[in-house]
Simulated assay, not measured.
Amino acid sequence: MTRTSDWLDGYIKAWASKEDADIRALFTDDAEYWFRPNDPEPVKGIDAIIEAWKEPEPSNPTYSLAVLIENSELGIITGTVDYPGHESYTNLWEVWFAPDGRAARFIEWFMTPRETAD
């Protein structure tokens, strides 16, 4: 296992459980969580991140996520997330690590499928 794959396993666990302890295991106390890279401000701090994670999702997601590349400071995760009956996304996530392996900064990049002419 690698630092990023361990973190991704924890993310998937926390995503499913929505338990405070599982989320706290992922992010530093002063972490920044960017839901979009161009948001005016990130969600700041672990308590705010926990609250944001507790917001209801449109449906139970299915996903295929994998580590693309990493070094000691940054992990890049790519894949897809599908919310049945709602939307599908292609993702690229930046995970900026603190020395203890938790994320100090997390940035989601996502795209929706392009409409194609039939």
Rank of each mutant, 00 (worst) to 15 (best):
E73M: 04
E115G: 03
W15P: 00
V43K: 08
R105M: 01
W96F: 12
T28D: 03
Y63V: 00
P113I: 02
L8K: 04
G10V: 01
D29Q: 12
D47Q: 09
F97R: 12
I69F: 15
I107E: 11
P37A: 12
A25N: 11
E19T: 02
D20N: 10
E87D: 11
I107N: 08
T4V: 03
E115S: 10
F97I: 05
V67G: 12
D47L: 06
A98S: 10
E108A: 08
D47H: 08
M111T: 04
K44P: 01
L68K: 12
I50R: 08
I69T: 09
N38I: 03
D82Q: 10
D30P: 03
W15Y: 03
W53M: 14
R36N: 05
T28L: 10
R3H: 07
Y11L: 06
E73T: 02
A14S: 08
A66P: 09
M1Q: 10
W96K: 11
E57H: 03
R24V: 01
A104K: 15
A31V: 01
S64M: 09
F35S: 13
V95M: 05
L26M: 04
V95W: 09
G85S: 06
E41K: 12
P37W: 01
F106P: 01
H86L: 06
L26W: 00
S59N: 13
A103S: 11
P56F: 00
A16Y: 06
